[in-house]
């Protein structure tokens, strides 16, 4: 009996400590969040009433919700794809054994280790008209574009994407490099003997070997980008007008500016459901390919 249980659930004792921590900090708060989304909870009011699907009905007719939803999708998809492409290119460069590369590997991480709050303040400083780094740089290059970039209707959203790239690409680079370093040289040698050039051996040797790491990085960054609120909140506050309004910022404003916890929870629940669908689909694909 015991033997068969362990054979079927051999991983359980090993993963149990992690599960306990996550359960304490996750399951209870999440259940509470779901319940709140069916109420008119307000942080400042003591009485809370059950309102059924009222919040969700309101949600589907709320134009700001849909706008934020679309922005969130565009931001996540664009940022993650670009991060992956540039991350692979960076990892390939970092892998080369050329003089000075070790030093470069150490400094390239710098943008990723800065707390997001500091990144936001730094970039606000650097896009200031007149004395900001980017405007000085453009003036130096002879481009006349002196403007507060976060205040530009056309530039604010791309700039938010650039901010994500600036912060995350180095991490992709280092993580994918780690995966590439685990590929034995013999595999490349074998490919070369088969007559494969560098491009073909990238597709036949490198890419399949770092596939797992790519999946891991993409999964986590989809969740992270879709859920990230401080990068937008601290730089544009969702403006100008609504041009950078995204779901997590909307949740924050509902929860901590309007104090309408119930409504905020319903947005949070929708986000949860969306990400859950994405995650399930991803795991399916991953395991099918594996099996």
């Amino acid at each position: 009996m015991k033997g068969s249980f362990l054979r079927k659930n051999g991983a359980l004792p090993l993963i149990l400590p992690t599960l306990i921590i996550m359960a304490v900090f996750t399951v209870l708060p999440l259940i509470k969040g779901f319940i709140l989304s069916f109420t008119n909870a307000n942080l400042l009011n003591k009485s809370t009433a059950y309102v059924g699907l009222e919040n969700y009905k309101k949600l589907f007719t709320d134009p700001i919700f849909w706008l934020a939803f679309v922005h969130s999708l565009i931001l996540t998809v664009t940022a993650v794809i670009l991060e992956l492409v540039f991350g692979i290119i960076l990892a390939l460069a970092l892998k080369q054994k050329v003089p000075g590369i070790k030093l470069f590997r150490s400094v390239i991480m710098a943008s990723w280790v800065i707390p997001v709050a500091a990144t936001a303040v730094m970039f606000t400083f650097m896009v200031e008209p007149g004395y900001g780094y980017y405007n000085i740089l453009l003036k130096f290059l002879g481009v006349k574009a002196n403007t507060f970039w976060f205040g530009s209707l056309n530039l604010a959203f791309p700039l938010i994407i650039i901010l994500h790239l600036w912060r995350n690409v180095p991490f992709y680079g280092i993580a994918l490099l780690a995966a590439m370093q685990a590929i034995p040289d013999t595999q490349y040698e074998a490919a070369e003997i088969d007559g494969a050039g560098p491009i073909r051996s990238f597709f036949t040797v490198t890419l399949p070997s770092i596939r797992n790491m790519i999946i891991v990085m993409v999964t986590i960054h989809v969740l992270w980008t879709f859920n990230n609120f401080d990068m937008v909140y601290l730089t544009t506050g969702g403006g100008p007008v609504y041009s950078t309004q995204v779901l997590p910022v909307y949740v924050y404003q509902e929860a901590w500016t309007n104090y309408t916890t119930g409504y905020a929870s319903s947005i949070g629940t929708i986000m949860f459901v969306l990400l859950m669908f994405y995650f399930i689909a991803y795991i399916r694909v991953y395991q099918q390919q594996e099996g």
Partner: peptide
């Protein structure tokens, strides 16, 4: 007002 300063806030007003 400088149109380039649209959408800017207090971190710019005083130093400027």
């Amino acid at each position: 007002i400088d149109p380039a300063e649209r959408g800017n806030g207090w971190p710019s007003e005083d130093p400027g």
